[in-house]
Amino acid sequence: MIPSSPVLPDQASDVARSVDHLMLYALSGLVFFSALIAILVLVFMVKYRRKSDDEVGIDIYETNRKSHVLELVWSVIPLGLLLILFAWGTKVFFEQNRPPAGAAQYWVTGRQWMWKIQHPDGRREIDELHVPVGKAVQLRMISEDVIHDFYVPAFRIHVDVLPSRYTTYWFKANRTGSFHLFCGQYCGTEHSKMVGHVIVMEPRAYEAWLAGEKTSPSSSAVASGDELFVAKSCNTCHRPDSSARAPILNGVFGTQASLNDDTKVLVNEDYIRESILNPAAKVVAGYQPVMPTFKGQISEEELIQLVNYIKSLKAAPAATAEAGK
């Protein structure tokens, strides 16, 4: 695969274009200032080269009142240009990091040395991520061991994949093709083999790919989570009719839960994950810390399924009845 230009990687999203424009601004500053310094140095070197052995230079600093003005000028102008660069760079960074509402939710699990990816409909793949063109895609990422980093040069963004909590990567591909996926954070022996591809397809081709390759009985993450919820006996306590041994999970996602120590916590993916692995850390007000830990008994992928399932639980009682069946 040959990149479209010898100095620019593929530009496969609008954000990538923003980054390139920003880079162009920074680059023009670099070229201007290094050329300025280089030319001045060379000219002075030749023009003022020592003509005789006892010649001395002429100190113009103390004699010239404008010297201090000059110092000010070459402090303030670069500072101004730098602050523009900072503001622009920050704007682009927020673009790179704030996914639009309604982005399709994919899940990424990193481990030494492979990427495991789960589509919204539950389909899984390894080291390859197929996505439709023109649709915003949001990745929730977690690592099973060390810190990894999800890096697609064509989208111009790196995000570290941590073993402690979820991180988020998003992009909206604007052209089809196959793009490099690298692990961007050194992660051990086979770090350079932790590579893959992001394959951007026409939506119809993507649908066909999803339908055509569904050979294993893969169900959606929500459905798998539902099964796990039963298999791990979560439903024995987390159900509406149990005598209040555990909070009801319907509709909790995204709300603020009050805790035993009078603080509040936002129920998000990280909180749910933590509560499964470490149930006593943040107990909801009115309940005892009786839930056993599932640390070591559950994989990150299963955690993702459970999180998905709990996210899907609406406040309507009907859904609960189904879940508790």
Partner: peptide
């Protein structure tokens, strides 16, 4: 000069997100 000016690029959030590591 070149090292310093590229350092400025790396201090820029939007660029660093791409060229980091």
């Amino acid at each position: 000069t070149i090292g310093g000016l590229t350092g400025v690029m790396l201090a820029t959030l939007g660029i660093d997100a791409h060229v980091h590591d």
